[in-house]
Simulated assay, not measured.
Amino acid sequence: MSGMVKRATRVAERLREDLSSLLRELSDPRLAGVLVSRVELTDDLQSARIYVRNELGVEDAAARRALLKGLEAASGRLRRDVARTMGLRVVPTLRFFYDEGIDAQRRVEDLLREIKDSSGGQGS
Rank of each mutant, 00 (worst) to 15 (best):
M1F: 03
M4F: 07
V5H: 06
R7G: 04
T9H: 15
V11H: 15
V11T: 15
E13A: 12
R16L: 12
D18P: 01
S20F: 06
S20L: 03
S20W: 05
L22F: 01
L23D: 04
R24F: 08
L26A: 00
L26V: 04
S27R: 13
S27W: 14
D28S: 08
D28M: 06
L31A: 00
A32S: 10
S37F: 14
V39P: 10
L41C: 03
L45P: 05
A48L: 09
I50H: 04
Y51F: 15
L56G: 13
G57V: 14
G57F: 14
V58N: 05
V58T: 10
V58S: 10
E59T: 09
A62Q: 11
A62F: 08
R65C: 09
K69A: 10
L71Y: 02
E72I: 10
A73H: 06
S75P: 06
G76R: 10
R77Y: 11
R77A: 12
L78W: 01
R79V: 00
R79F: 01
R79M: 00
R80D: 12
R84I: 12
M86K: 07
L88M: 15
V90W: 13
V90H: 14
V91F: 00
L94V: 03
L94A: 01
R95I: 04
F97N: 00
D99V: 06
G101I: 04
I102D: 12
D103A: 15
Q105A: 15
R106F: 14
D110F: 11
D110N: 11
L111D: 02
R113A: 06
K116H: 10
S118F: 03
G120L: 02
G121R: 10
Q122M: 06
Q122S: 11
G123C: 04
G123D: 11
